[in-house]
Design a protein around this nucleic acid. Structure first.
Ligand SMILES: [Mn+2]
Ligand SMILES: [Mn+2]
Ligand SMILES: [Zn+2]
Ligand SMILES: [Zn+2]
Lengths: 157, 157
DNA sequence: TTGATAAATAGGAATGATTACTAAAAAGGA
DNA sequence: TCCTTTTTAGTAATCATTCCTATTTATCAA
């Protein structure tokens, strides 16, 4: 999970992408994160090092990396896109209170059989399991504080 | 799956919700759909019957129904919220080409064991499997027409 | 090393789904 | 019926994301 700058440059070149300082910094920030950050999260993280960085560039970069297959988008709701540089097959646990996303690497989940009742011309390319619930802190604030929400509104599904 | 107007009124009253023509029409449209429509889809569908209907009311109504537990939000991406009145545990197949969402009722998928490696204070309340791939028509247009996208409008209703 | 070329960047403007605000209408209960 | 609370509809605001475009930069070939 730890790449040198040369590794990253190699990886970019291998995909036909130019290697730029901004792009490298954005990708590196994502690789080092386990929080499935938003574009704005990454922007804020890289900005101190590149004060001229544009949020637009972060979106553009993430789009390019996604097209190149170096990054995947994780959708926990329709509100904001969250990104993941972890390409190994894995699944997610989402806290409905604080929107935290945790990785689930359980190998049992990677052997699900194709679902029954599908149109036979439908080709499944991947699947992902989203577990939802409440993390420890959010369970507490739910129990103690019934009425007032703890700030962020939960997503549903 | 087929409710009379009285059934719906009963259901609303049972949740402490007022029964209004607009609300009934919106809910009925959703119940009769298997397409997981957007708020705007439902708006368009109900508008001919209630020409003064506001899209705002559709959003408000869906929010109320979701809070009451009569409707769930299905997130296939971060772009637009899609809704589902099917509350029985089921999963989804999503076409990456045309954004169509199909229901998957495979009972095998409702017996997944809790994933390993979770913080022990995390409480899972539900989970959902999202299969992704390409439907028959989209596989064809992908094969024949590499460059031009076939338009990414979901097939509604 | 240099120059050509295509890609990347930054900034500003635009888009579009959703929410906020609010006055008027309507539903449900007494 | 009358009262209270929701609901509705219209408009404006918000905010994530995309579009547009001039400038800069990385890469490659001469
Ligand atoms: Mn992940
Ligand atoms: Mn469904
Ligand atoms: Zn939490
Ligand atoms: Zn399709």
């Amino acid at each position: 999970m730890n790449f040198s700058l040369d590794d990253i440059q190699q990886k970019f070149r291998g995909c036909g992408l130019k290697s730029t300082p901004q792009r490298t910094a954005i990708y590196q920030a994502l690789v080092h994160s386990t929080a499935h950050p938003t574009a704005e999260d990454l922007f804020a993280q890289v900005l101190p090092t590149y004060p001229m960085l544009s949020l637009n560039t972060v979106y553009y970069t993430l789009g390019v990396l996604r097209t190149a297959g170096l990054v995947q988008e994780v959708n926990i709701g329709h509100d904001r896109a969250r990104f993941d540089a972890n390409l190994s097959p894995h699944h997610h646990v989402i806290c409905l209170g604080c929107q935290t996303i945790l990785d689930v690497m359980d190998p049992k989940l990677n052997r699900l059989t194709s679902p029954s009742g599908l149109p036979k011309d439908f080709e499944i390319t991947q699947y992902q399991v989203a577990f939802r619930g409440y993390c420890g802190p959010c369970r507490q604030s739910k129990a103690s504080n019934t009425a007032s929400s703890s700030g962020k509104r939960p997503i549903s599904q």
